[in-house]
Design a binder for these strands. Structure first.
Lengths: 152, 152
DNA sequence: GGGTGGTAGATGAAATCTCAACCACTTGGA
DNA sequence: TCCAAGTGGTTGAGATTTCATCTACCACCC
């Protein structure tokens, strides 16, 4: 046998459509965020994680786990964000190896300016174009698929 | 007003689930392709476009349009793929500014080796985990959203 | 013929991401 | 106590992507 069974038309068509939507949607959202807030989507994700915390601080490990980024990527990225004044690092008393990332005032201003525009873009380009049932199905799909994707 | 209306729970939940699925699924597919075929997903996309052509050649412009890549990204990427022997460039007689990319024998071998494994991974990680109706809905979503994402 | 504007593609520098070490510290024994 | 293995985080080099610019050519108009 030449290997696994190929995709049939229905599968192929859906899979390609999904890939295309993904690529274009991400690209558009990224460009828009960049243009009107000066942040990348990656910056934004980091800032969102920080604002999700009650005290706007997270352990770097935890952030890496949540974002599923390689730790070196995160470290480099934080260095750049720190250079731009969006976040800061602080030592961790409980574990001298560790560090916290902290949201700065400028970081908070940046995400507070960016978030509403981003939400508007997500609505305009995506949510407003599909029905509530479709949205629910999408969530169901994601919830079914996600557990199979965890790393270890 | 502080800007657009925020996402409600249902929207927020679905949107985040979708983003998470995306990120993790892409990461897993990428790693698997890299590990067992030595190609990146980007390489693969380029090779797929080439094999979709009857004569395994495409104008670079057309490839850029289809992949929606910046032309400089494509140019650099093709240079690297050419260095690895996966593709070649050829001049274009009809328009002396233009070029063709051509699939080499090694490029064909590479994609023929990679494709079945990739399909298997897509099945295992995604298609096998959702129902036919869900897949159809996903296609419908993509088809609704895509037209609003075209560039100009 | 000689502009002028637009298109195809390449190029170099800067930003970002990955990969493989590395260092400092913690943890869990023997 | 001391050592080996593991963890949290950084670093530098190489690969990839973006951004701005450049060259060569086409198409059209004068």
């Amino acid at each position: 046998m030449t290997g696994a069974r190929w995709l049939d038309d229905r599968e192929q068509c859906a899979w390609r459509a999904y890939l295309a939507m993904n690529a274009r949607l991400t690209a558009r959202l990224h460009r828009r965020m960049q243009d009107d807030s000066g942040l990348s989507l990656a910056d934004f994700e980091v800032l969102v994680c920080l604002t999700d915390q009650p005290d706007a601080r997270v352990r770097i490990v935890e952030l890496a786990r949540f974002l599923q980024w390689e730790k070196s990527r995160l470290s480099h990225h934080l260095t750049r964000m720190q250079r731009r004044g969006l976040v800061d690092r602080e030592g961790c008393p409980e574990d001298a190896r560790g560090s916290f990332v902290v949201l700065t005032a400028a970081g908070r201003r940046a995400i507070e300016r960016a978030a509403p525009r981003h939400v508007a873009a997500v609505r305009e380009l995506f949510l407003d174009r599909i029905t509530g049932e479709q949205l629910d199905t999408l969530r169901e799909i994601a919830e079914r698929v996600l557990p199979g994707l965890e790393v270890e």
